[in-house]
Design a protein around this nucleic acid. Structure first.
Lengths: 129, 129
DNA sequence: ATTTGTGTATTAAGGTCTTAATACACATTA
DNA sequence: TAATGTGTATTAAGACCTTAATACACAAAT
């Protein structure tokens, strides 16, 4: 468990995104326990309060749930879980298309670059095996 | 001149991005005058200090220049201007590819969605003519 | 000369984000 | 019973962003 933080977005937002990515990849399944606030804070080297803030919002988004003072768990609502992946994809596509169109670049002109970049980055991750 | 602001990024950052998009689209050319700090603030309904902050950073990035107390102008360095467009494109592509890969979605699986979204959004802008 | 419009600078206040230091209730474990 | 680990909550401080209210030097226009 390690997360690469950027300096633009609030840490608690990036933590939420991290969990969404894990869910989208199937690394977290329905009902699975997640680290405690304090443990997550240790792992990511952030403040426990920031971890708590992320968890609190994930709870409001129905992504996780907490019963009493047991460790929080990933939601058992499969519909919600499936939605996470789809929303991340739609978000990425919308952002990309919006960026390209805001500078009047024809899609056909960048598709090749997308493929090239994708292959190059895939190469990177393969090499680290 | 109108800019759609989001609530995530600092306003001065979004202002800089707006100018970069205008340059990338060729709406601003080398040496062209840009609105004064106060005028821009009026147009975008932001604080003059925020406009000043954006201009100050664009100056540090060599995007604009100011002589004495004349209105600031777009840089005459064509190399810088050309770079703006390329960097915006690379940034958009990298962000998109990174997002897709962080959730293990094969590129082939989203290319169709990209095209569909692109066409749909083009339709929107066409209709507003 | 006065007014207006540049760029530039300073100070103050309020909001958000983050860290920090605690505190409490509850359940499990030693 | 005492210690530990949960979730939850409060208060305080500092950093950054934004707005606000001014102020000053300079140049052009009236």
């Amino acid at each position: 468990m390690d997360v690469k933080f950027n300096n633009r977005d609030p840490v608690y937002v990036q933590v939420i995104r991290h969990f969404k990515e894990q869910i989208a990849k199937g690394y977290y399944v329905a009902g699975q326990e997640i680290p405690s606030r304090r443990e997550l804070a240790n792992q990511l080297k952030i403040n426990p309060n920031t971890a708590q803030r992320a968890y609190k919002e994930m709870e409001e988004q129905q992504l996780i749930y907490t019963e009493g003072n047991l460790p929080s768990c990933i939601t058992k609502d499969e519909k919600v879980l499936k939605n996470v992946r789809e929303e991340l994809i739609i978000e990425a596509v919308d952002l990309f298309v919006g960026s390209i169109q805001s500078i009047n670049v024809p899609l056909s002109e960048v598709l090749e670059l997308v493929k090239k970049t994708h292959d190059a980055k895939s190469g990177e991750t393969e090499e680290s095996k």
